[in-house]
Write a protein that binds this DNA or RNA. Structure first.
Lengths: 201, 201
DNA sequence: TCGGTTATAATACGAGTGCATTGTAAACGG
DNA sequence: CCGTTTACAATGCACTCGTATTATAACCGA
């Protein structure tokens, strides 16, 4: 055994450099040299930890998802408890929106990978799996709220999850382009929650 | 005056080559040589009609929007008349979804430009303007239906337009990745229209 | 201490890039 | 019919890219 180095930590460190470069200059201008420079390491080291550029990008994408999910879980844990199903769902969805620069940076990277996934089957599969997980989580939250009587029993959690997921993802793009303001997007979210939780009827 | 050539037609022809290459291999692998080969012309000709690659891509993006809007207008004109505000809106929104391969190709290109716009202010401005036009159109359609009594008067067309626009754009991404099926997406659209036109109350 | 394995760096290489330059043919105004 | 302008083609150039190769240093088991 030679030098002891935390392999996974090094890969994450490189992935973070990838994400930073992607957020500022876009995925198409990410080169191994840029990543190495951003991470303050040599290009050979990047190659040592990733067989190819594609594998490096895929890992960076997985890392982005993992980091984002972790951040969301933290914020939810930090929010006031106990809370209703509605407030929980609102916290969750609002956390997905790019409301501050940190999340905007993450979202810029995310749409870059999304565009790449449109022409790369392997990445597309990964995106689909990621979204399926999210969808199932949303549906579970909605079903739980329904079982607690917060949502009318005739609603189908699966169908509602489709709507709320698509609405949120759509708002994400529009906020990112500066088309809808944070307030406008949050109001649209609340409008939907009003509808789902039957405030208006 | 030398050879008489339709300048705009040539530029559109080149733009179509750009869109074809982008739809199959992605925006990041679009080179002047690829575009020339795809269009069956020389690389020098491409340079003759566009000062730089960036300008070529911007024009191609504008052309994509123009072509898409035109196609939507045609389909609407071809649909049965007269129709209710609801059926009109449904036709309009369903036409935006990538339900067949032709529209899927266009959508792949669209998300590629979207990702680029996230790191290019000029393109971002263009995207924002495009979306503002679409939003205003949607709001106008909703307001017209409201004035004809199809939608409850207390609804705000602007707010509803935000929701329907975001929902549709979200569904676009999810369909493109193969996450939601065409039927699932259309059902989510219909669910929203039920809500907007008050079928359920 | 020695041998082998790994971490890290430096660099060479061929392919591809956008753009600039140059060349050629065709169409008009004079 | 001539010259200027434009349409189009071909090629050269400086640069960047991902990857392969090689070199060096550090560590640990034997």
């Amino acid at each position: 055994m030679p030098k002891i180095v935390d392999h996974r930590a090094r890969r994450r460190q490189i992935a973070e450099a990838v994400l930073r470069v992607t957020a500022t200059r876009g995925l198409e201008s990410v080169s191994l040299r840029d990543v190495a420079a951003e991470g303050g390491i040599s290009m050979g080291l990047v190659q040592h930890y990733f067989r190819s550029k594609d594998q490096m990008l895929l890992f960076a994408c997985e890392y982005l998802i993992e980091r984002t999910n972790q951040r969301i879980a933290e914020r939810i844990a930090a929010s006031s408890t106990p809370q209703t199903g509605r407030s929980f769902l609102r916290t969750l969805l609002a956390e997905i929106l790019p409301l501050d620069e940190e999340r905007r940076a993450g979202t810029r990277v995310w749409v870059a990978f999304l565009a790449r996934a449109a022409v790369e089957p392997e990445l597309e599969r990964f995106m689909r799996d990621t979204w399926t997980n999210s969808h199932n989580y949303f549906a579970g939250v909605i079903r739980a709220a329904q079982e607690r009587g917060e949502i009318a029993p005739e609603r189908d959690p699966q169908r509602e999850a489709v709507s709320v997921f698509a609405l949120t993802d759509g708002l994400v793009s529009h906020i990112l382009m500066g088309h809808y303001s944070n307030e406008t997007a949050l109001r649209a979210l609340d409008d939907y929650l009003d509808h789902l939780f039957g405030t208006e009827s």
